[in-house]
């Protein structure tokens, strides 16, 4: 049994070897992050007399971790501590984000571990067709997330105006607040849907992650969406989002645009 494991952060597709200068340190206790090239599936292609454009090559971004720190029993136990997971999820994400400028980057699930580099590469080779299909879809694209939340302030605003003089008043006020909240949510959701469609038209692909109908009563999230956008169009896309969300923000809806993310929702 080996004393170390190969931890895989992501798979990178690029014509040239990606730079690892300034790459974040990786998971706690890991050795420095490095690249493992995955040989092309068909060696026959190399002898073929074409290759006018440099063929894209595939690398795994990995680091060596002590087995004692990431063994199955350890994971099983530590997965109960959100702080432990959170620290590692951030470290994992930071490494993946370093490669966002590559032609395509496929993030691995947290805690993807292999006994050796060779075994990691072999797994990719075996899964080559599925991976190539995903890579071609996300090449040159990054993900942006948009979440719209109706603020508690805006939700409760009408209640403040009413004065309470009796029990009946109190009940009437409660009813009014409930109705007002319902109306505001309804309007905010309609606005969210309209905005989502407009922004989606600017994106390569879009996914509305929250199914509003299924969201439990009381949720103030009116939109939770992910957009796949060409990496070069980030500024234009952000401008569209700002323009669309501006009027809503003034009406008490909080808009959070996050990104650029690896295309998690489109793989």
């Amino acid at each position: 049994m080996s004393a170390t494991l190969t931890y895989v952060y992501c798979l990178v597709r690029s014509a040239r070897r990606p730079s690892i200068a300034g790459v974040p340190p990786g998971l706690p206790l890991s050795e420095p992050v490095r690249l493992v090239e995955v040989p092309d599936a068909a060696p026959a292609r190399r002898t073929a007399p074409k290759a006018k454009t440099p063929a894209a090559r595939t690398w795994l971004v990995v680091s060596t971790v002590p087995q004692a720190a990431y063994a199955e029993e350890v994971l099983e136990q530590e997965m109960q501590r959100l702080e432990w997971i959170g620290e590692r999820a951030l470290a994992h994400e930071a490494v993946v984000e370093h490669f966002l400028r590559a032609d395509a980057v496929l993030p691995m699930q947290l805690f993807t571990l292999f006994m050796t580099d060779e075994r990691a590469a072999a797994h990719v080779t075996r899964d080559r067709r599925r991976i190539d299909r995903i890579l071609s879809k996300i090449a040159g694209q990054v993900e942006w997330g948009l979440r719209l939340t109706l603020g508690a302030e805006a939700q409760a605003a009408p209640a403040r105006r009413a004065r309470v003089a009796s029990g009946a008043d109190y009940l009437a006020r409660k009813r009014d607040v409930r109705d007002a909240v319902r109306d505001r949510m309804k309007k905010a959701r309609l606005d969210a849907t309209r905005i989502y469609r407009t922004i989606a038209a600017e994106a390569t692909a879009a996914e509305r992650r929250t199914d509003i109908d299924r969201t439990v009563p009381g949720s103030r999230v009116v939109l939770d969406a992910a957009f796949l956008v060409p990496a070069g169009r980030a500024a234009a896309f952000r401008a569209v989002v700002r323009r669309q969300t501006g009027p809503l923000t003034r009406a008490g809806v909080a808009a959070a645009l996050t990104g650029p993310w690896p295309p998690y929702n489109f793989i």
Binding site: Y70, L106, P107, Q109, T112, H123
Partner: peptide
């Protein structure tokens, strides 16, 4: 979001050691 993404949406490679 980071935890949600990394844990739930990354590509699953079926490594030697995978999360149950």
């Amino acid at each position: 979001d980071v935890i949600d993404n990394a844990l739930n949406k990354g590509i699953v490679l079926n490594g030697d050691l995978t999360l149950a």
